[in-house]
């Protein structure tokens, strides 16, 4: 079975309506099915690793959104599920994100290490 690297870069598109990032969700589903999968957060998606995200409190008329997305917890759950989860250091730096803001267990790698990361997987699912 191929070892898959799932690359997530698009962030906060539809996450309120879906209560998930669709690719983090898909990657976790695939892991649960027994696939050897890793996740790379790059671009704006590095912010998914930031702790303390809060998308609660939205109302639309009398309609309340009682179950908001919890992307930081989703990242922690991926890590807890033994999905190696990487984040690009320069993409953190570009956005002013400090290392103490991000989830424990995230593997911080530099852009220059991406080629090795790609080489270590059989298939690249670049969403």
């Amino acid at each position: 079975m191929a070892k898959i690297l799932s690359v997530v870069e698009r962030a906060y598109h539809g996450t309120i309506e879906e209560q998930d990032d669709t690719i983090l969700w898909l990657s976790h589903m695939i892991k649960n099915a027994g696939t050897d999968i890793s996740v790379l957060l790059r671009g704006n998606a590095v912010n998914y690793g930031v702790m303390g995200q809060d998308a609660s409190g939205l109302t639309f008329g009398e309609v309340q959104m009682d179950v908001p997305p919890t992307l930081d917890t989703d990242v922690l759950n991926l890590i807890a599920a033994d999905v190696p989860t990487y984040v690009v250091s320069e993409d953190l730096d570009d956005r002013g994100i400090q290392r103490n803001e991000i989830a424990d267990g995230l593997k911080v790698i530099s852009r220059s290490e991406l080629a090795d990361l790609f080489d270590s997987h059989d298939s690249i699912w670049h969403w």
Binding site: E9, G43, R111, S112, L114, A115, D116, F118, D119
Partner: peptide, 18 residues
Amino acid sequence: ADTTYMYELAGDLCAKGN
């Protein structure tokens, strides 16, 4: 603005003999 990523990745992958 992020597009140079692919060009840099192409160069890095090539530099590793791919």
